[in-house]
């Protein structure tokens, strides 16, 4: 983090923080362009780009046609030829349409061309459930992209990190995929003014504790924090780690915490099977921290089903605070 330029801190929403990051990038680096469907006059599906088109014009804040594959292809090509495009998907679910460009091109071009070309593209993915957007607009597909060498995948959980990770992504020579949780867009929090970066690949300890480690991603960090407060009243001292970066993953922070607490709970919204928490669990199980485990590792993830439209069912298929409380209590008391 660049301390010299981090002068003051204001309350901004997560969406505002992202917009501020893009504003700073657009104003200080002429290579930066924004691309995406309805990001111009409409201001973006979730009003993240807002009025940036008025400030920087349609040459730098470009509406792309309703073709994710085409738009992503243009962004990847632009990155290869020297621009720093930030490509917005309306919903992360639509990444499925652009997989060829993301997985086969962006992630592999540097490798296949012997390092002579890199793809400094940034892609933004509004992700997650909770908006009543149903099965095709509510998924958490970060583990899909996290599975691809050549990509970096981050999940900011706070306004400060949303801005810092976007600015870090722009400095990165390789494609960076940013999964932004739709429910968090309106969440407010302190955001330093000016330019700073949140390092990619570095987790944050949101709460220190000694009884168990809860590794959460994205919105689950907030649910874990809420659970930790309740747990504290019950005498259970949970450490909450915000993973922030799915690829690369901050091994040391997680292992150090598990060595301390001996108990690990992973909470993530993506489908539990083969998800981010599966990787965190395996990472711990394969490490020297294994010898410090005093209970089985527990994962809480999304249910094995599409996200339902029914609001009650929609809540039921992803981990909620009571689920975290229940699992944490069992873990901390040796009941699992």
């Amino acid at each position: 983090m660049n301390a010299e330029t981090k002068i003051e801190s204001r309350e901004l929403s997560y969406a505002e923080a992202i917009r501020e990051a893009m504003d700073i990038a657009l104003s200080t680096d002429e290579r930066v362009v924004l691309m995406g469907e309805d990001i111009g006059v409409y201001g973006g599906a979730f009003q993240v780009t807002g009025d940036l088109v008025e400030k920087y014009g349609e040459d730098r804040v470009m509406d792309t046609p309703i073709s994710e594959l085409g738009g992503a292809g243009v962004a990847v090509g632009a990155a290869m030829t020297g621009l720093r495009p930030i490509f917005e998907f309306q919903f992360s679910d639509f990444a499925t349409l652009a997989m060829e460009q993301i997985v086969n091109q962006a992630a592999k071009v540097r490798y296949m061309l012997g390092g002579s070309v890199s793809v400094p593209v940034v892609m933004r993915f509004p992700a997650g459930s909770g908006t009543g957007a149903a099965a095709q607009h509510s998924q958490s597909l970060e583990a899909w992209l996290g599975h691809v060498p050549g990509l970096k995948v981050v999940q900011p959980s706070t306004p400060e990190d949303a801005k810092g990770l976007l600015l870090a992504a722009l400095e990165d020579p390789d494609p960076v995929m940013i999964f932004e949780h739709k429910i968090l867009y309106k969440m407010k929090g302190p955001v330093p003014a000016g330019h700073y970066i949140t390092p990619i690949g570095k987790a944050a300890i949101r709460r220190e504790g000694k009884d168990l480690t809860i590794v959460g991603t994205s919105i689950m960090v907030h649910k874990a924090m809420a659970a930790a407060e309740t747990l504290a009243e019950e005498g259970i001292d949970a450490e909450v780690i915000d993973l922030r970066s799915v690829r690369p993953m901050d091994r040391e922070t997680v292992l150090a915490s598990v060595r301390k607490t001996g108990r690990l709970l992973c909470v993530y919204e993506g489908v539990k099977t083969l998800g981010v928490g599966a990787e965190v669990s395996a990472m711990v199980a394969e490490s020297d921290a294994f010898d410090f485990l005093d209970a089985p590792i527990v994962r809480l993830g999304g249910a094995e089903c599409p996200i339902p439209y029914n609001p009650e069912l929609e809540k039921a298929v992803v981990p909620q605070v009571p689920d975290i409380l229940d699992a944490a209590r069992k873990l901390a008391t040796g009941a699992i």
């Binding site: 001996g262 294994f290 010898d291 410090f292 485990l293 005093d294 209970a295 040796g334 009941a335 699992i336």
Partner: peptide, 23 residues
Amino acid sequence: TPRARALAREGGLEIAALAGTGP
């Protein structure tokens, strides 16, 4: 648990000789 085994090793105890109170 792995932790119990590690502690038993350090303490020179045999894990099979200990009574477990866990599940």
